[in-house]
Amino acid sequence: MRMAALFTLKRVLNAPAVAVSLYAVIVAAIAWASYTGAQQMGYNWQWYQVPGYIYTFTDDGFQAGEILTGLWATILLSLTCFLLATLLGLGVALLRLSGLIVGRAVAIGYLEFVRNIPLLVLLYLFYYVLGPIFGFDRWAAAVLTLSVYHSALISEIFRAGINSVAVGQWEAAASIGMSRAQAYRYIILPQSVRFMLPPLTGEIVNLIKSSAIVSVIAVAELTTVGRNIISDTYMSFEIWFTVAAVYLALTLVLSFGVSALERRFATET
């Protein structure tokens, strides 16, 4: 009896009309709470000022505002780091699976070192310690920190993906005389992509979000730009809401794009 009642409740809640209205009610409640809260502390809302920080139209045409410029820097930073982290991660994964005792030890050492330090401390290490020693600037420190940090996580994704390919595939490749490198390139890696895509998407979304941390060394990306605008205008509520929305839009677009890609890979094999 009880199970049946629960089942009916679930069905009612999942009906599109009910689900959408419930969602709207919850969002409205949050908006109302923050609005009245801000009202009570005498906050002066200035939403009308926000679009000017995103873009303006002048006689010269479209002008990107500070937030768009910051977004572009975030995208550029994330893309660069993702590419570097992927290459580094692949290297670490291959080293770990190489069957060489030294290779395995180096890979595990790297992985455990990077994974078990807070990202913020790693950033300080690169910026305040390695930066002056090797003479690189804040942008390079930011890129290196994020690449190294995420390469450790990505190498685990690669390792899992490579291990998901059946042992028989290695044997078949070996039986036609392929070297280990050829087997990886032509047989194993193309098949592991399917297993790696979903977690890799998760990782690039994580990377975009953790890229905000480089604002502590004043790299001019989205979060830094937001902080700068606020120190000029004191519009903390509007700007942080906007910055959050921009991050959200970026990561959502990415997730949908990749799930389309996944569907294509799934039908191909």
């Binding site: 028989g168 078949a172 070996a174 039986s175």
Partner: peptide
């Protein structure tokens, strides 16, 4: 060993064709 495997063909119980 690699040269040898080129000259020795092998057929497996589970076929082990390359699915991609």
């Amino acid at each position: 060993m690699r040269q040898l495997r080129q000259d020795v063909g092998m057929v497996f119980q589970q076929f082990n064709l390359f699915p991609h």
